[in-house]
Each structure stands twice: as C-alpha cells, then as structure tokens.
C-alpha cells in the first residue's frame, strides 16, 4: 500500500519510513495522512523534543552487546541461550508502578483470585534497579513522561515493557486531551500491548504469557527492538 502525502502536509517532517533502520530512529512517527484543524495548537506544529532515544541510538551505545544477552556467556554454546531465555521468561519481576486505573487491575492480577505468582511474576519490586518488566498501567500524561522514561532507563537489561490499557496503547478515551501521551510507544519501546479500558486481570496475565513467549523467541534483544508504534513494513 503506497500512500502519498497530501498537498497540505508540513514539509519539515521526515519522509515516510520505509526501512527497518528508520523505524528505530524516530520517536514521533510523522503523520502525513491527516492534518489538524488547528495546527497551531501544538506549538506551531513542532516536533517533539523528547530525543533521548534517538540520541541513544546515534551514540551507538545500544549496539554494544555488553552483558545484555551474550557478554561473558558467549563462550557457552549457542544452545545455552534457550535455557537462559527459559529462565528469564519464568522469572519476570514487574516494577511496582501504577499510573492510573489499570494499576488496580494490575494489583488484582497479583492478588488471590488471579494469582500471577504462579508464573513467577509476583515479587513486585519497588526499585527499578531490580525489575525486569515495566507494566505501564494507566494514562501517561506529558508531565509523567519524563519520570516514566527515567524509570525505564534505570532498569537494567534485559528488560521488557508491557503497555496495559487503551490509554497507554493509543491514547484511549483521552485522545483529544491537551496533556496526555497518545500511546507510550511514542516515548519508549513496547513489547506487548494489552488493550482494554481497563483490561481484565486475565487479560494482563495473557499479555504477560505472550511476553514469556516473546522472550523465548528472543524478542528482548535491544538492537532488534523497534522504537515507535508498530508500523507495517510496507507502509
């Protein structure tokens, strides 16, 4: 499907992404299909200034594979990775950080009725240094974006992110709001999206089990991660 920009589109935006390399770079996926009825409302239509991920990519630090997956374990035969991934998949400590409504359902998923502990996902760590998976549960506002990104960057590799709820997946019911982020995949990489407003606890557990499957398929590898919304290759 080839789409051409409409004549009225802003010219300072980058072209439509075509390669996988390009998908890694931008934080804000340029939109050329639609124009706001009031473009000035967004500070003159300027780009986002959240560029830390872009700078991180440019610095090349993310491409060093230090102690993330292989590191000192490179000497072990490749098949050992399967075991390591199994271990990682079965011990996912979420970060104890709820943003809004979904946090209650996240807690409900960990409590007696829907016991996430059964899969080894229970010890909710209060400190990001010890957490493996960031469940972004609830609406992320623009004021919260900075702290949230810092939390993500404070987590040690390997780490994963689960976007829980419509607000974190795409903006949800706050899609017109002046102060919410329209999907957290604009500021940080996301591995699993769990839609729903809020999703049931079973939904979150299903998402976490999907994450386990992804880990077993080696999805957490940093260079393979696409930053930004998941856009089809042919767009």
């Amino acid at each position: 499907m080839a789409l051409t920009p409409e004549p009225g589109a802003a010219s300072n935006l980058p072209a439509i992404v075509t390669e996988r390399r390009d998908l890694v770079e931008p934080i804000v996926v340029p939109n050329t299909l639609w124009q706001s009825s009031n473009p000035v409302a967004y500070n003159g239509g300027q780009d986002s200034e959240i560029t830390h991920l872009r700078e991180f990519e440019a610095s090349g630090a993310g491409r060093r594979d230090d102690a993330r997956w292989a590191g000192p374990l490179e000497v072990i035969p490749t098949k050992a990775d399967i075991v390591l991934d199994l271990i990682r998949a079965n011990s996912l400590w979420p970060l104890l950080s709820g943003l809004a409504c979904c946090a209650i359902e996240m807690m409900s998923a960990a409590t007696s009725k829907n016991d996430m502990d059964r899969w080894g996902m229970f010890p909710f760590r209060a400190s990001p240094r010890q957490a493996d998976v960031l469940i972004v549960a609830g609406t992320c506002t623009t004021k919260m974006a900075g702290p949230l990104v810092r939390l993500w960057e404070q987590m040690p590799e390997p780490k994963w992110c689960v976007a829980m709820g419509d607000c974190t997946c795409s903006g949800g019911r706050y899609k017109r709001s002046y102060s919410t982020i329209q999907g957290i995949d604009r500021i940080m990489p996301v591995d699993v999206y769990v839609p729903g407003c809020p999703p049931r606890p079973e939904g979150l557990i299903y998402g976490m089990m999907k994450l386990q499957q992804l880990i077993k398929d080696r999805r957490g590898h940093w260079p393979d991660r696409a930053i930004g919304p998941t856009v089809p290759e042919d767009l």
Partner: peptide, 23 residues
Amino acid sequence: DFFLADDASRSPAGGVRHMEQTH
C-alpha cells in the same frame, strides 16, 4: 480561547508535548 484538537494522536507532535495555546 484554548481549543482542543480533534485528535491529538494524529497531530505533528504526536501528543508527546503539552498542547499550548499559541494564538
């Protein structure tokens, strides 16, 4: 005099920044 966009997620800044009233 502060107008909301029809859909902030499709705006150029993608809703990542605070929406400001500039006019």
